[in-house]
Design a protein around this nucleic acid. Structure first.
Lengths: 211, 211
DNA sequence: GGCGTACTCTCTCTAAAGAGCGACACCGAG
DNA sequence: CTCGGTGTCGCTCTTTAGAGAGAGTACGCC
């Protein structure tokens, strides 16, 4: 590589809202040092686009049809462990943030970020420098130290959030009601909640479940 | 007015995400027959912008800081009962839709709508023709016939969603636990739910509460 | 006035949820 | 192999939630 980088930063956009893609594309293409090379409207397209174009930066929305953001991050990093991924989403639950960053995404920012911040985030990530806004970083730190739920507990939590009773949950998971209660109890303890309803509120705020 | 409309449709955009505003602005300004005259990042700005520019169409996001979409619709229609408002949001709960349309918004569409649909919606609303996509219309019809909650019940529902117990709710609203139970019972009946947790799930899906 | 609606309160009774235990089998990491 | 984590099941006990039914007050509307 020469000392002077003449080629522009290539960017792939993945977001299920055409409006958002247009907005990002407009912002990016207006810059002299970057350009959008492809767009994707769902998770599978995002993976396909990445594989095909191998962009410098993949800008990714978390909540998408077909395959959600976390899964896309995983798959893309399987394809290319050095992939530079910038998560851009509306969700600020600490679980989402933690998942993405710990899995190897280089940046995470919220859609209500100002133009300048978005552009500098893309530039940072393109140079393999991590970018995290202060508010997002704070959330990620919040998540530290908090106990994490097991897969089974997440399954149970999901059913609890749908309003199922312990008996109902037991039936669906082919376990006894007592065991279902044990799981719920563990969930309440880990989320520091008194009732199942409060647990759902807490879990939703943290991004553990998505209603 | 002459038979040939030479002046372009003036549009004011209100959305708390700069990215979305950019996207919409790019789309709109690319059209020969319309232009963006102002942008707002929160509810109060939206009202101020409308009052100042009196655009042909106000494109409005529902969830915004300072003042939410429904309140903005109300206020703007107070200022100008003939205001043409197009709601554009990610939320498809039937309560949101019903509220906005019944209060006088001329159109409602989702952010994942394709470019063409967004543009034709703006044109329709600018000519005072209502625009509603089929999926949104279906939601609005779903809401018909369903019992609506009283203000008190909405207050209780909000507390239930936060995970409060009946006793807790009673204390906060300065009523007896028995009365709190009566309200919760009424909520369960109206939402056709068996438990409070299910009620929260249903209410969230319908857009009655926003966590 | 009469009617409907919302809000309040009281009562009983059953079902569910949650606290607090202990226990055993499995499995992977050290 | 031992140990920690997980998932399973069991038990008792108290608290909470929810079903059902009745009833009084206030307010606005026709």
């Amino acid at each position: 590589m020469s000392a002077v980088m003449k080629s522009r930063i290539s960017v792939v956009l993945a977001d299920d809202h055409p409006v958002v893609r247009d907005g990002l594309a407009a912002m990016v293409n207006q810059q002299a040092d970057m350009e959008v090379v492809a767009e994707a409207g769902d998770g599978e397209q995002a993976i396909a686009c990445y594989e095909q174009h191998r962009p410098d930066v993949l800008v990714l929305d978390l909540r998408m049809p077909k395959r959600d953001g976390v899964a896309v991050v995983q798959r893309v990093l399987e394809i290319n462990p050095k992939a530079r991924i910038l998560i851009m989403t509306t969700y600020d639950g600490d679980e989402d943030i933690f998942q993405c960053l710990s899995q190897g995404a280089k940046g995470y920012l919220l859609k209500d970020a100002p133009r300048q911040e978005i552009l500098s985030a893309i530039r940072a990530v393109s140079e393999d420098r991590p970018y995290t806004s202060t508010t997002v970083a704070a959330k990620a730190l919040q998540r530290m130290g908090k106990p994490s739920l097991t897969q089974r507990e997440l399954n149970v939590l999901q059913l609890v959030a749908e309003g199922r009773s312990n008996k109902d949950i037991a039936r669906r998971l082919s376990i006894t009601e007592g065991t279902a209660k044990t799981h719920v109890k563990a969930i309440l303890t880990k989320l520091d909640a008194i009732s199942r309803t409060e647990a759902v509120a807490v879990a939703h705020k943290r991004g553990l479940i998505h209603l």
